[in-house]
Design a protein around this nucleic acid. Structure first.
Lengths: 239, 239
DNA sequence: TTGTTCCTTTACCCACGGGTAGGAATGCTA
DNA sequence: TAGCATTCCTACCCGTGGGTAAAGGAACAA
C-alpha cells in the first residue's frame, strides 16, 4: 500500500559529492533500480501468461535469479501485481497532468489524453492496469487502485463536460461516453500482444479519429444502391 | 473440445411416444438440464470472483452439491470455462444470424448487432467471453475460441465495409473501427458488475448513439469562451 | 426380489506454488 | 584483521485445490 519510492526524489541530495556516504547512497540507488527491474519483469511475465499462470519462479528465472531474491525486493506476489497496477495507472495520470497545461479547446486536450492513454495501455504495464482483477488484491490495495481508476474516469468525464460547454464536443452523456472511450482504449491490451503491427500511439490516433467523426456520414448520405445490395445478401442467406 | 450436445437434435426421435424408452429419454433430458445448470453456476461464480479464485468446491456449493457431482457432468475445470466461453460467444453469433435477415442499410444492421452484443456482454456468460484468458485453456480449446472470436470480428468489419459502400457509414478503417467498437462493448463486462443502473440493452443503445454521432459537433461549433475557461483552469493548476 | 444403471457422496491423493529459515558470499568500515 | 550489513542462494514447509477411487442409495427392469 504505502509505496514510498525514494529513488527519483531523494536523488536531489546527490549534490554533496565525495562524502563518505556516497557509496552507500549508490547502493541504495542500485537497490531501487533492481527493485524496478523486478517489477518490470513481473509485468512482462504477467502480460505474457497472466497473473495466476505466472509463478514467482518464472519471474525469478526471467531475471536469472532465484525466488528468494525476488522476495528480497518485494514482500508478496500480490504486492508485485499492485506495483505494476500503480505503474500503469501512473502513466495515465501523468498524461492528465501534462495536458492540463495546453491552452486549446477541451476536445483537443481530450484527444491528447487519449493518445497517451493508448500508449500506456500498449506498454509493459498496460496489461496489469487493464486486465488484472481486483479480486486478486487485498481489500486495501483493491480500494486504492479503484480510487486511482476512478480518478481517471472522472478526468475524462470532466474533459467531456468542458468540451460540451466550450462547444468543441457534441453534447452527449459524459458518463456513458467516458465508458465507451476508456473501454475501446483499454481493450487494446487484449489484442495488442497478438497484433503489434501498429504502435500504441498510432492505434490511439486512429481511435481518436473514429470517435471524433462518428459512424454516421457527415455530408448528405448517398444511400443509392442499398436495396440492390440487400437483394444480393438475401440470395446468399438461403443456405 | 468435442462438445456433443445431444439434447436439441436427438429430441427429434421423441415422436414415438408411449414406448418403454420414454423415461430413459426424460432422464437424458434431465441430465442435460443439470449439466447446463452446472455451467451456468460456474459462469456466475467466475463472474463474481474470477476463474482462478473460484474453486470447484465453490461451484459445487453454489449448486448445493459436492465436487464429484460437478465432475460427473464435466471433465475438468478447464472444460467448464470453455463451455462458458462458447455459450457467451454463441449469443453474439446468434445476433449476427438474426440481423442478417433485415432489409435495412448496413449501419442499422450493425447497430442491431451491437445492441445484442451489449446484452450478451452484460449477461452471465459475458464475463467468461470477455475476461477469461485463453492461456487458461489447452491449445486446442484456445484455438477454437480464437476462431469463434475472429468470426465475430470479421462479421463487424464486413458490416462496416457494406455500410461504407451503401453510404450509410462514414468511410473509415474497418479493422480499427471494429476494434474500437468491440472494445467499448467488451469493456462493459468489467464495470457492469459494479454499476447495474442500466440494462445491457440500454448501455448498448447509448453506445451506439455515441458511435454514430461522434464527438466533433455536427453543426457549426460555437467555441466562444474557450479562452476564458482556459484562464480559470490555469488558476487551479498552480498548487 | 435381484440385478443394473444412474447419480451422488465420503474420503482421499498429490502436484503446484507462495512463502520462509538459515546460511554463504561479497563488500564496506575500522 | 575482525566485524557488520547487504545480497543472494539452497533447502525446505505446507495450504490450497484439481482431480479420483470406491461405495452408498435411488430408480427402474425382469
Amino acid at each position: 500500500m504505502n509505496s514510498r519510492r525514494t529513488s527519483p526524489l531523494a536523488a536531489g541530495k546527490t549534490a554533496a559529492a565525495g562524502s563518505p556516504w556516497r557509496s552507500s547512497r549508490e547502493r541504495l540507488r542500485d537497490r531501487e533500480l533492481k527493485r524496478d527491474a523486478v517489477i518490470r519483469a513481473a509485468a512482462r511475465e504477467f502480460n505474457r501468461k497472466g497473473y495466476h499462470n505466472t509463478s514467482l519462479d518464472d519471474i525469478a528465472a526471467a531475471l536469472q535469479v532465484t525466488k528468494p531474491t525476488v522476495y528480497y525486493y518485494v514482500t508478496s506476489k500480490e504486492q508485485l501485481l499492485f506495483e505494476c497496477f500503480v505503474a500503469g495507472v501512473e502513466q495515465i495520470r501523468a498524461a492528465f497532468r501534462e495536458v492540463r497545461q495546453l491552452a486549446v479547446p477541451a476536445r483537443e486536450r481530450l484527444n491528447a489524453v487519449l493518445r497517451h492513454y493508448g500508449e500506456a495501455v500498449a506498454s509493459d504495464f498496460g496489461w496489469c492496469m487493464v486486465r488484472a482483477e481486483d479480486q486478486d488484491l487485498s481489500p486495501a490495495m483493491s480500494r486504492h487502485i479503484k480510487s486511482l481508476k476512478s480518478e481517471i474516469d472522472q478526468g475524462i468525464r470532466r474533459l467531456l463536460r468542458e468540451g460540451i460547454q466550450d462547444g468543441s464536443i457534441e453534447p452527449c452523456d459524459p458518463k456513458m461516453t467516458a465508458f465507451a472511450l476508456a473501454g475501446a482504449l483499454n481493450w487494446i491490451a487484449h489484442w495488442y500482444r497478438e497484433d503489434q503491427s501498429l504502435t500504441g500511439a498510432q492505434i490511439a490516433t486512429a481511435f481518436v479519429t473514429i470517435f471524433e467523426e462518428g459512424l454516421r456520414p457527415r455530408r448528405g448520405a448517398l444511400r443509392i444502391d442499398a436495396r440492390a445490395r440487400r437483394r444480393r445478401t438475401h440470395g446468399t442467406l438461403a443456405r
